[in-house]
Amino acid sequence: MTIEETGPESRQAGTERTPGALDLLKGLGKGLATTARTLARPAHTRQYPHTEPDLPERSHGVVALLEENCTSCMLCARECPSWCIYIDSHKETIEPTTEGGRARQHNVLDRFDIDFSLCMYCGICIEVCPFDALFWAPDFAYAEGDIRNLLHEKPRLGTWMTNVPDSALPEGYVRPGAAVAEAAATEPAPAEPAAAEPAEPADPSTPEADPSTPEREE
């Protein structure tokens, strides 16, 4: 009431009028009204440990490994900003299948570890993998009592593939479990696993497969 005396003068000063005492009171009233309205409504909180969160399937929870796609190319390990990926591999020779053919070599993955105590969940490894061997999985509850237990190895990284959404998987890939179910459901299914098989082995000569996958969207 008393501050209002200065109000009108300052309003005339510029084209953009400065808020006066009345605006101030209006704003304060608005604050009270908003909080009161929120009080009357139910809370948005979900009590996490008691009720599981309802996460979108593409949540960035943990990095999952599709082992059969990995060529041990080391791109992920080299791009990782926190150096938390450890890869060991050895070369094996594939004997020629036709007579007079040449023997070929391929990498066999011995060790693929991600240290989640160092990982900062930037997802660069997933972005950089040309062979669709790494995926975001929505799993998040993998805390450990000891920080050393956060170093997860191939088998554990592989288990997280179960929750990777189908839309994120490479085209033509069929899950090990789903292949059986689909074979039973549709008749021409037997051809499908066969088609999936050649696409997935670690074949460095087919990097064209990756731009088509939806994983590249982000």
Binding site: T35, T38, L39, H44
Partner: peptide
């Protein structure tokens, strides 16, 4: 409690 519910939370539970 009042602050929590005014902010759409539950507060201590």
């Amino acid at each position: 409690k009042v602050m929590a519910h005014m902010q759409g939370r539950l507060g201590p539970m």
